[in-house]
Amino acid sequence: MKSLLVALILLVAIITVVAVQAAPLERQHGAHVHGQANGTLAVDNGRLSLSLVVPGVNLVGFEHPPSDDDQRQRLDKVEQALESGDWLTFDSDGDCRIESSELAMPGFAEGSHDHDEHHHDHHHHDHNDHEHAEFHVDVDIACIRVGRLGWIELNLFEDYPGNEKIRMDVLRDTRAERLRLTPGDTRIRLP
């Protein structure tokens, strides 16, 4: 009888814990399409802010913490390339330069599961490995003559055949539009 009571209390406790844990919407998954990167570009008062989310597969070919030296090297190389900002080319008429650049690589950190800042909730499920490792890049750009800036190019195709298209939402003073950049057309035009 007593053991039954203990079992019952335990059961109630478990149900409560489970219920409390399930209360916030934890079972959400963002879309993650291999081969396609998503980005946004906002042009506002001479400043451009560009964000990009690229699935890990597109740039390094894997989506987990590097498991050997080869993968580690590849990851380092991509990390350096993204941080350098060299993958961005501007129309020289705009006189633009990169003010700051931030890179996060959720899902690629070795050993740690809670390292990434942006998508912490993403990986708290009962999976042992990370599901989707991504590169998150945020770049702030200042232009002296933003009115004359005709285009920006994202050179993320030539060196990365796994990156097939970039969907860019571009926001300007008067309009918003969606562009699709491909290896054949890497240019965001800002007429």
Binding site: P24, L25, G30, T40, A42, S49, L171, R175, A176
Partner: peptide, 29 residues
Amino acid sequence: RSAVFGLQRRINDFRAEALTAIMPGIALQ
């Protein structure tokens, strides 16, 4: 206006309720 993308991401990632935030011009496109 430049805060649109940030807010859109925050709304789409909102944990307490499953929401969708859209920019009307882009949805029309």
